[in-house]
Amino acid sequence: MKRWIAIAAVIAVAAVLPLLLNPTGYWIRILTFTLLFAAMAQVWNIIGGLANQTSLGHAAFFGIGAYTSTILLLKFGLSPWIGMFAGGLLGGIAALIIAVPTMRLQGHYFALATLAFGEVMRVIANVWTPLTGGPGGLSVPFMPPSVAAYSFKQLLPHAYIALIALIVVTFIFEAIRRGAMGYRLRAIKENAAAAEVIGIDTTKVKLQTAVISGVLMAMLGTLYAQVAVFFDPDTVFSAASISIRVALIAILGGVGTAIGPILGALFIIPVEELMNDLFSASAAGLSQLIFGVILIAVILWRPRGFITVFDAMVARLSGRAGS
């Protein structure tokens, strides 16, 4: 009960926050991307945290989603809301195709195989010019603003859509974690041999996880396309700024926990923006270096993520309330 009140309070604060920001300003954009990346990291967390398979190729599904809805809109005038589900379907199929041969791999081998898959998708999008527009990228056509057309004059609705997406994927993550599937995944993670002999179909559970994660990641790709309005293969299929970044957000925040990716995104996205803002004019490249140093320092300080700081704070607060 107490827990639900806390969750409702956090959601209420998050729902009011965008209203306090200048609707055409810089910070609402950062907030939107922070929420979107938190959702992406949460989706990564389903496979990376619950199934313990560190994917470095989630840009593949993200890009598939962005391209699918945008191409359907450009060629057939289909609303991105529908295109989002079409992208989700293709993302799920792609996840299945990559998961079947790679799921038996573990650790670094799985990470490298998925990294390669993301890069393959980037190369394909770059050369398949008739469909994707090639390296020139795609512009999302401007539609008369309406909810049905997923087109808005301001960023505010996008911020709310990203917030809703984050809430939805967080609930999906928690439902999996606490459900029968979560138990199966925990059993596999803790002792694969014992999981096998009690009758858990390890391959099937891992495939299910991969597909769920792939579908959701592709759907978030549509959200990104609608906010960004323009994108090219090197942005949406990027290993560094999508695949590795979402993994980093989840790991830095606290892998395998529902709150981890949210804490990670709240830190990484604004800090990275701030560094770019502060240093890019004076010395290009320096901002990335400083950002890297901050990340290393944080990981050395809290190897298991911000969640440990968060847990300590909650423990102290509830201890004080109790005394």
Partner: peptide, 10 residues
Amino acid sequence: PEGRHVFADM
């Protein structure tokens, strides 16, 4: 199975 295969964190 051989070796004490329990789920240690459960």
